[in-house]
Design a protein around this nucleic acid. Structure first.
Length: 461
RNA sequence: UGCCCGGUAGCUCAGUGGCAGAGCAGGUGACUGUUAAUCACUUGGUCGCUGGUUCAAUCCCAGCCCGGGCAGCCA
């Protein structure tokens, strides 16, 4: 007999004379004449209730079905006589495939997120993490759907790279050299010419530069893959390995870039609202009471836009005492970004046209010569979720910017070629997938929206 | 990396310079269709590690390890 997923059994429209379920026991309640089991197979937040009569030939097995055990049940799907569920399964035969003894760490009662992180191999069996990773899967799908519908081409940019996408952060080195006895040059330096790639190589911090090359051929492209930062960041919003979505559009300027970013964020929220209803309701009940209200509010309202210069004026005139001073030309600090999104605009806000000195070399210089066409999308509760810009398409201006950043034109020869041959205005951005998940689920720590988090000092599993 | 908070039973936590505590989980029994079932009884401890102060340290002090929060870096 074919297996029925719990999700489908719960959504049944009629009783079934024969049903075959496989899953894990969440809880068992015994009475004298029968036992109730809640069985979950990960297909939905809810489990299904199984009732097993003490007269069953297999009833002895049921005593071995503790919380965490894997089981198979054959029986009938019937309308439940009890409150709290529409359907239940009356067991006719019952097999415990894998027992879970008293050392099974997941209990029916609540656990702290910190404890569950230490058992990251088991935490998907909990309600919260089952829900988080179902939403993660759904949003990954929604990302492809959003871009494919708009005729964006999916590009797989390399994970190992020799370019460092200047400004994006510290890099992890990729090498096959023997760290205790590396080959040396005559000058006494490590000889990377003898390394696997014949030069220094790293894990990518961004696929942007490579995506630009494809945008300047296929018009609209996007990447979606893992990226790596070797920053010693210890916050709830940073991980050493995370997934990023990076669209890049030819024949597009800052305005179109901001519009796409805003539509994109709304699309993902709308998709989760529609396709992960039960999971989002669970988060709203147990993780963040304001979640659904906030998501719906964000869907309804247009995002705000505000130039960096105006943002600085708002901060200066706020009457607030800032821990970090507010001054045109300085980076906005967390407290400033939070104030804008959470208190001043009270909704997601796109800040654009940042001072040139704060941003990487590749951003399009404005006519004022002082600012570049950069944009950051700030959301309440998290801060920066998207960073992007229109790219500098003018060869001479780009070369000048590289000189100012002391970058070698030799290293970026292929990037400069894009401006030598058929250059066009183009723009793109990066969305941190995990930060988006934090926003959609209300989960407050990035470690809890990644299956196996990689943070400084932590690479278990 | 800096500042701050924490580490006591499998889990969540209370507690004290002088015999180590509760709830849940586990075990045994009861039970009428239960919903984190309920009721009774019950097993369970290197009080993070090392050193110091003390007659005596889980408690006070120092160092270290681990976890978390915030900040910086950014997505």
């Amino acid at each position: 007999m074919e297996r029925t997923l719990v999700k489908d059994a719960l959504n049944a429209t009629a009783p079934m004379d024969a049903i075959f379920l496989q899953g894990w026991v969440r809880t068992r309640r015994d009475a004298k004449a029968f036992s109730f089991l809640e069985v979950n197979d990960g297909s939905s937040l809810r489990g299904i209730q199984v009732i097993a009569d003490a007269g069953l030939p297999d009833y002895a097995h049921i005593q071995r079905a503790h919380t965490g055990a894997s089981i198979e049940v054959r029986g009938k799907l019937v309308a439940s006589k009890g409150q709290g569920q529409q359907w239940e399964v009356v067991a006719e035969s019952f097999v415990v495939l894998g027992e879970a003894d008293a050392t099974y760490p997941l209990q029916k009662k609540g656990h702290t997120l910190e404890f569950l992180r230490e058992i990251a191999h088991l935490r998907p069996r909990s309600n919260l993490f089952g829900a988080v990773f179902r939403v993660r899967s759904r949003l990954a799908f929604a990302i492809h759907e959003f871009f494919q519908r708009r005729n964006f081409i999916y590009v797989h940019t390399p994970i190992i790279t020799a370019s460092d996408c200047e400004g994006a952060g510290e890099l992890f080195r990729v090498t096959t050299l023997d760290s205790s006895h590396p080959p040396m040059t005559e000058q006494g330096d490590v000889d990377f010419k003898k390394d696997f790639f014949g030069k220094r190589a790293y894990l990518t911090v961004s696929g942007q530069l490579e995506a630009e090359t494809f945008a300047c051929a296929l018009s609209n492209v996007y990447t979606f893959g893992p990226t790596f930062r070797a920053e010693n960041s210890n916050t709830s919003r940073h991980a050493a390995e995370f997934w990023m979505i990076e669209p890049e559009m030819a024949f597009c300027e800052l305005e179109g870039n901001m519009a796409l970013a805003e539509e994109f964020v709304k699309h993902l929220i709308r998709d989760a609202r529609e396709h992960c209803t039960a999971d989002l309701e669970f988060f709203s009940k147990f993780v963040d009471k304001e979640l659904l209200t906030r998501l719906d509010f964000v869907l309804e309202r247009p995002f705000q836009r505000c130039s960096y210069t105006d943002a600085i004026a708002i901060l200066e005139q706020s009457g607030r005492k800032w821990e970090h001073p507010v001054q045109w030309g300085d980076n906005m600090q967390s407290e400033h970004e939070r104030f804008l999104a959470e208190e001043h605009f009270k909704c997601p806000v796109t800040v654009y046209n940042y001072p040139r000195t704060l941003k990487p070399f590749y951003m399009r210089v404005n006519d004022d010569g002082k600012t570049v066409r950069a944009m950051d999308l700030l959301v309440p509760g998290i801060g920066e979720i998207i960073g992007g810009s229109q790219r500098e398409e003018r060869l001479e201006v780009l070369r000048e910017a590289m000189a100012q950043h002391q970058l070698s034109e030799k290293e970026y020869w292929w990037y400069l070629d894009l401006r030598r041959y058929g250059s066009v205005p183009h723009a793109g951005f990066g969305l941190g997938f995990e930060r988006m998940l934090m926003f959609v689920t209300g989960v407050g720590n990035i470690r809890d929206v990644i299956p196996f988090a990689r943070t400084p000092g932590a690479a278990e599993f």
